[in-house]
Amino acid sequence: MLWKHQDWRTGLAEVRHSRRLTVSFVCTIANYEYGFFWHFNQDETIKAEVKLTGILSLGAVQPGESRKYGTTIALGLYAPVHQHFFVARMDMVVDNKPGETFNQVVEVNVKAEEPRKNNVHNNAFYAEEELLTSELDAMLDCSPLSARHWIVRNTRTINQTGQLTGYKLVPGSNCLPLAGSEAKFLRRATFLKHNLWLTLYALGEMYPGGEFPNQNPRVGEGLATWFKQNRSIEKTNIVLCIWRDAHSKIRRLACHASGTYRFCAQATLLSCYRCATKFK
């Protein structure tokens, strides 16, 4: 459903059906299949989803024994609790013509108004914007307590109401790495220390974890190294790198085939909404 409304005065109802274009691919990595789905909708929203399926990687336990770090799913078998991290790299060119680089990013937090004369019912709140101007200021984290989101907008294009045109980035539910700061995998994936990174586009800076993540840390590779340049990200070509955690505490499934336990899970990586459209 794209849109629906029923007028309470007349009783008349209208509805518009929706269609969407989905671009997808599946990667098989060891015991997992990862399905990536990019949905392009008629209302100009873009949504990225990840589906996890395949077979479980299990450990053995003695009869009657349980594991603190996993879930018993069958006699003598347990599945460890674990995390998956998926990174989306988006080269944002919002309403730019070829050769133009007029984008900027603002962080938006919703705040409650202080009790005062014009807030007698103590229920007023407002959205506050902060312009992000450099890479070191743009290592960002999600905050559900303030409905935090980000807007990538064009500084030279406005719509009929005078608003700068742009896209709002809304991350899915997330969880930071459940590991100590000295964990070895964080040396390879230092970008996991923050949920969202904004960086200046540069040829050759393609992979947040470096070109060969299994061999990292490598000098000069990855987001954590690029950010040390502290380049300006105001009115330029901006790249967004956002990651999503899929936290897996396996539940016991009722079905299995050929002695292999199957599963399927789904996570929303991100959603992009048109927050101001240019009308011709």
Rank of each mutant, 00 (worst) to 15 (best):
K278S: 02
L140K: 09
L12F: 15
T155H: 11
L77D: 07
L269R: 05
A276T: 00
C264Q: 05
A189L: 12
R274C: 04
N174M: 04
L58D: 10
S258D: 15
N41D: 08
A147Y: 10
K235W: 01
Q163P: 07
H84R: 01
V87W: 02
K193A: 12
H256P: 03
F279E: 12
A257E: 09
R262E: 06
R218S: 08
A13C: 13
G70K: 05
A254R: 15
G35H: 00
V23I: 11
W243Y: 05
S232T: 15
A147W: 06
Y273K: 10
S181M: 05
I73P: 02
L75V: 09
Y32D: 13
S181D: 13
A189F: 11
R231I: 08
A254G: 15
M139A: 07
D137V: 06
Q160C: 13
G99H: 09
L253D: 07
G64H: 13
W8S: 14
D91H: 15
A246D: 00
C264I: 10
E182N: 09
L52F: 02
L132A: 10
A183Y: 04
P98V: 03
N216G: 14
F125Q: 10
N159D: 13
D43N: 06
R274F: 06
F85N: 02
E100V: 04
N41Y: 00
M139K: 14
I46D: 03
D141C: 06
L21I: 08
H17T: 15
Y201G: 09
V105T: 13
R251P: 05
L223D: 00
R16Q: 15
T45G: 09
T155P: 13
L56V: 05
V61K: 07
W8F: 15
N122E: 06
H5N: 12
Q160Y: 13
K117L: 03
V87K: 02
N214R: 13
N123K: 08
T268P: 06
G166W: 02
Q42K: 11
W3H: 11
H194E: 06
K111W: 12
V170S: 02
R148T: 11
A127Y: 01
A224Y: 01
K278H: 11
C272Y: 04
M139W: 11
V94S: 13
L136V: 11
L223M: 10
E129Y: 06
W3A: 09
C142P: 01
N96S: 10
N103V: 13
R9M: 10
L21F: 02
R9L: 15
R89A: 07
T199N: 10
L223K: 08
E234I: 05
W226H: 00
E234L: 12
V50K: 01
P80H: 05
A202C: 14
S66Y: 00
I46Q: 08
T22P: 01
T133F: 03
S258C: 04
I238A: 01
K278R: 12
E221M: 06
A138H: 03
Y207N: 14
L2C: 10
I233E: 03
E182T: 11
I151A: 01
I233G: 04
A13M: 07
H121I: 01
A265T: 13
N214D: 04
E49V: 01
L169K: 08
